[in-house]
Every structure is written in structure tokens, then in C-alpha cells.
Design a protein around this nucleic acid. Structure first.
Lengths: 358, 358
DNA sequence: CTGAAAGCGCTTACAG
DNA sequence: CTGAAAGCGCTTACAG
């Protein structure tokens, strides 16, 4: 007498027992194949006969089967979660990037799990490591400024977690980078001001410990040089990427005997600060002072006059980063990916004009 | 001769075999208890002797053990992921709420997975169901406007996924709600304008299909009534929560023969639009026109003059919502939670003043 | 208060 | 091209 399995319940009810979601076993039974073969179909293995594959796919579609990501993850020793670790303080930047990542993940079995962080926190590295390791993240997307943290990168390397860094210049292997070429934006800002006829041109950059601040300034200086101009030291200011810093430094610049007729800011927030300082000084934008920002945040189209600024396609950058992570898995490290880069563009609005006649 | 297991590798190396993370088995072996007992300690079961518990906890701490969320989830038939499903278009709202949720989850084993959505999409319900069901979400946080979608709620109920709805009025059982009492903000705005002496007061609300729009207007009308004023039909306008809608409707209002001296807007974006319309009409804020917004977004402190607006503590609301989800699990539905509500406050800045002398 | 067995739903070697 | 066995790291009944 043949040995019978001791699970009579499984034999009676149909594939969808009591409204429960179907499992790989249900599919296998209905397709009269082993669950392993179903697994092969799920994972796009080439070692399945076309006919078999079609039959299985039909049943999968019919039952609306979707493999359990937890079970899959447990067996794979890796989850289907893509992390985004951010310390960027511009809400629109964060939301746009999230959306880009989400759009790139659409139709895949990946999900986006997010974490904000504070690099000053003594727990920072410990927390990030625990997060990534515990969740066995499939990969992480790192926007600036965390993307610049080499300590974090070391941790990720140590636990072998794939990552894509988004930064203003290349910091790593092409497959792990999206380069945003911020210097091109700085360059365009400089040329625009030079073309308008400005010569007394100032720059309020982000703190130079930030790569983006450095790159934006570098491009700006190059652009000025191309027009035969230079950034005078007294016109070159370094500050936090905040509204308040913008107010403060613009106030100082505008109080100079020979004040600048144009200011290029490291971001839009600072530019909004410049607007305030200009009002306080009784100066009109763009008649007395031209201003350029960086980011093209929503703010740029809400303040008056509308801000001329540099736009980076944050949404697309997020999408590209996620796509690289996903592609890396598919290509199995065979095809080392090409470098991915993106170039900012100048958006001319109302805050720039010819310098006032002296 | 006793039967020997055929896994010699496992017998030789110590608990931390080759840098791999320790498992519940390692802890059990070192503590000389069954893995079940370790499991009890992990899950705070009361049925463990204090002494045993301490010994196990010591070993857990020493090895830096953390249970695998995927394995736990698989066995629990439920993940440790909390979802946030949003369709709010204000980046700051989204980011603040995320941060609140993240802060509430700090120190727990939960993670935040996010999804944006479009309620108009025919796939909307299908996608959300697939998302929640497949990930076996521990629970979801629903900010407005998705929080108002009864179809989504039905889906969540059907698949027994806990949720917390954030809305301007109570839409569900207390344990599943954070009520933001938007009407109180509308009321405060009305009183403020009445106190300044305004009588020709207009309102540009969000579309009335949105509960928040309705509640804000309701409170506003009540506040006016308390001051013996009423919202004249021609001063009562309904529009999308956008900058452009603000411009358009304010332009219409300001073109009236008897134009209003004050406008209360459904949100800050619309208020920024009113600023533009006022400039276009050659009117000065607040001298000729007082404006009040709603949200206290970053924009409110960047536009000129600084916007008087109504503030809702979005970060805290997110934290409360997440806390409710987590608490619900702990209390095992025994203690039906009290209602959680939050009240907006008026932030008076520069955009409101006495009406112009006629 | 504690444990041995079975199972969650998948995948990895290892065979054929 | 396909499958039976063992395992991923945990928890749920069920016993004691």
C-alpha cells in the first residue's frame, strides 16, 4: 500500500482554499509540474520549455498568483526592497526623487522603503548598517548630500549592498553613479549674466564641504572666465543652503560700496533670501539686481519676480538611479554599465536683466 | 550507533560562522534553551522565567542578534512594513508626514514603505490592493485626500489591513482616525479678519468634493457668523488647490465693482496665486487687500509679504498615526483607543491688516 | 514555564 | 528541460 501524505485538507478543496491567496504549490498542482518549474517561470529561467512556460503562465494569470516577496526574499537571502536614504532638506527634491524611483519600479516586484538620516548623529553609521542589513535591501539610492559620505559607502561595501550614488561629479564606478554635472549649470548661469552685460557678479555658494556647492561654483567661475570675467574674492561667499544664509550674505554684499549687480545663488532657497535682502535695501529685482537660483523648486515660480534658475530633472534622476539598481541584478554584473549623467539647464524667468546704467 | 545529522559544517564553526549574522538557533544553542523560548523573548511573551529571559537577552545583546523580519513575517503571515499611500501634491506635507511616521517608528522593527497614487486611475484600487496584500502590510497611513476614499477603505477592510485615516473630520472608528479639525482653523481665520474690521470678506476654497475644503469653509462661515458677518455667495469661490486657481479666482474677485478687502484661501498655494492677482491688479498686500492661507508651508515664509496662515502640525500628525497603528497591535484590540485629534492654529504674519479707509 | 514537530512560501544545490 | 530533498529563519498550535 502506497504511503499517503497526512494532509487530507490539501487534497479536497480546490486551488483557492477559502479565499486565501494561491501559492506556488497551487500553481504547480494545477499545471501538473513541480513547484521548482513554476519557480523557474517566475524567475525567468531559460530552462523551461516554451509550452510548459505558457501553460504555467496561463494558470498564474488565471489565479492572479503573485509570489510572496517575503518567502522569496527569505530563500534568496535578499529582499525586494529598494531603500532611499536621504538627508536633503528640500521637500520637493525628496518627493520628486521618490516619485522617480516609484515610477521606475512600476510593474516590478520592488517596493520603496525610505529613511531619513543625520550624518552628524553618532549613531548614523550604526543605524544605517542595521537598517540595510536587517532588511537585506536589494539596493539603496543615495541622493546628495549622503551620497558623498565615504564612511557610509564603506559600510555598504562591507555588507555587499548595491547602491547608486547621485552626485554632482563622479565618485565611484559608472554602474554605481548618476552624475548630475552641476558645473554645467553654474557655467550657464555665468554666461547668461555675462551676456546681459554684468561685470560685478557675486556668488553665494553652499558650504564647500558639499560637492554640489563646489561644482556649481567651479562651473560658474569657468563660465565667467570664458567671458573674460572673474569672480572677485569679496564677491565670493560661502554659506549654508538656507533662506537665512541667503538674506545675511546678500545683505552684506548689497551694503558694499561697490555692490554687485548680479548674484548667483547655490540654490533657490538662498535666492529667496536675496530677494528679502534686496527689498530691505530698497533695491528692485531685476532693475537694480539680477538674481539666479539653482533647483527650479516650486518656490522659483511663486516668488516675485519669478526666479531665473537652473533646473535639474530630479524625478528622472531618481528613476535612472532605480533603473540602474534593477538592471544590475538582471545583467548579473556581466555588462558593466555605461556612465549615467544628466545635465542641468538654465530656466530664464524674470529675475535677470541688464545691469543698471551707472 | 546514533544517527548523525549530515551537516558537518554546522557542527564545527562557532556561533558566528564566517561573519554571518547570528540566527535564533545560535542564540538558542548558546543559551541552552529551545529556539521557541528565544522566540518568546523576542516577542515579549510573559511565559518566560525572568532568569531565562535575562540570560537570553544578554546573549542577544552580545551577538548583536536581530530577528530576520522576512522570516518573522513569513511565519506571522504579516510583514513589519507600514505603508503610506498618498496623493497629496504638497511636497512639504508629504515629507513632514513621512518624517513624523519615521520618528514614531524609531526603535521599533517597523519600516516605512511608500506609494503615491492617483485616484482617477482605473487601476487605482487594483494596484493598491495588490500592493497591500502582496506585502502583507502591517498597516497603512492614509493622509488626505486618499484618506477620504471609501472604495479604498472597503478594499482594506476586505483584506483585513489595519489603517489610520487622517482627515479633517471623523470618518471612522476612533482607533482608525486622526482628526485634524480643519474647521477650527477656518473659524480662527474668520475671527481674525472680523477683528481687523473687515466686512467684505471672500473665500476661495478647495473643491468641495474634498472634505478639508468643506470643513475649512464651514469653520470660516461659522467664525464670520459669530462676528455677525456672512459669506456672500458672490464672495464664495470654489477651485482646485493650486496656484493657478488662486490667480484666476482672485482676479475675478478683485475685478468686482465692490471687491473684497480680505480673502481667505483654502491653502497657501492659492494664497500665493492671490498675491500674483493682486500685483496684476495694482493692489498692495496688506494695505489694499488682506490674505490668509492654510498649511503654513515653507512658501508662506518666503513670499512677500510673509503670509498669515493656518498651521497644522503635519509631522506630529504622521507620528500619531503611526503610533496608533503600532499601539493597536500591542493592545490586541482590547483597549479601544481614544479619539486622536489635533487643532490648527492661526499664524499671524504680514499679509493681514485693517481694511483700507474708503 | 519550556520544547519537538510542522509549517509559512519560496529557492538553492544536486540529480537526472 | 524537469524534479525530490533540504533549507532560508522564524512562529504556530500542540504537548508536557
Amino acid at each position: 500500500m502506497p504511503l499517503r501524505k497526512t494532509r487530507p485538507q490539501l487534497e479536497t478543496p480546490g486551488p483557492e482554499r477559502r479565499g486565501k491567496r494561491p501559492t506556488i504549490n497551487d500553481i504547480a498542482r494545477l499545471a501538473k509540474v513541480s513547484k521548482k518549474t513554476v519557480s523557474r517561470v517566475i524567475n525567468d529561467s531559460p530552462f523551461v520549455r516554451g509550452e510548459t512556460r505558457e501553460k504555467i503562465n496561463a494558470i498564474i494569470a488565471e489565479l492572479g498568483f503573485a509570489p510572496d516577496p517575503q518567502a522569496r526574499g527569505l530563500a534568496f537571502r535578499r529582499s525586494f526592497l529598494i531603500g532611499m536614504i536621504y538627508d536633503n532638506t528640500t521637500p520637493q527634491y525628496v518627493v520628486s526623487m521618490q516619485q522617480g524611483i516609484l515610477d521606475a519600479m512600476k510593474g516590478t516586484s520592488f517596493e520603496l522603503v525610505i529613511r531619513s538620516c543625520n550624518r552628524q548623529d553618532p549613531q548614523f553609521l550604526h543605524d544605517m548598517r542595521a537598517f540595510v542589513e536587517r532588511q537585506k535591501l536589494f539596493g539603496v539610492v543615495l541622493p546628495p548630500a549622503v551620497s558623498e559620505d565615504e564612511r557610509l559607502i564603506e559600510v555598504l561595501e562591507a555588507i555587499e549592498c548595491p547602491y547608486v550614488r547621485i552626485a554632482s561629479l563622479s565618485l565611484a564606478q559608472p554602474h554605481a553613479m548618476v552624475v548630475t554635472n552641476d558645473h554645467v549649470g553654474g557655467n550657464a548661469a555665468a554666461r547668461h549674466l555675462a551676456e546681459l552685460g554684468h561685470t560685478r557678479i557675486a556668488h553665494i555658494s553652499g558650504l564647500a564641504l558639499s560637492r554640489s556647492a563646489h561644482e556649481r561654483r567651479r562651473g560658474f567661475v569657468e563660465g565667467l572666465a570664458a567671458a573674460g570675467l572673474k569672480l572677485e574674492p569679496e564677491y565670493n561667499r560661502e554659506a549654508a543652503y538656507t533662506f537665512e544664509a541667503g538674506v545675511e550674505h546678500a545683505a552684506a554684499l548689497l551694503a558694499m560700496t561697490s555692490r554687485p549687480t548680479a548674484i548667483f545663488c547655490g540654490n533657490d532657497e538662498m535666492a529667496a533670501g536675496v530677494y528679502k535682502a534686496a527689498r530691505d535695501a530698497g533695491l528692485s529685482i531685476p532693475r537694480d539686481l539680477s538674481v539666479i537660483g539653482f533647483d527650479d523648486s516650486a518656490l522659483a515660480s511663486r516668488i516675485y519676480p519669478l526666479l531665473t534658475t537652473v533646473r535639474l530633472p530630479i524625478h528622472d534622476i531618481g528613476a535612472m538611479a532605480a533603473a540602474k539598481l534593477i538592471a544590475a541584478a538582471r545583467e548579473r554584473h556581466d555588462h558593466p554599465q555605461k556612465i549615467t549623467e544628466v545635465t542641468p539647464t538654465l530656466v530664464v524667468r524674470e529675475s535677470t536683466a541688464c545691469p543698471p546704467k551707472m
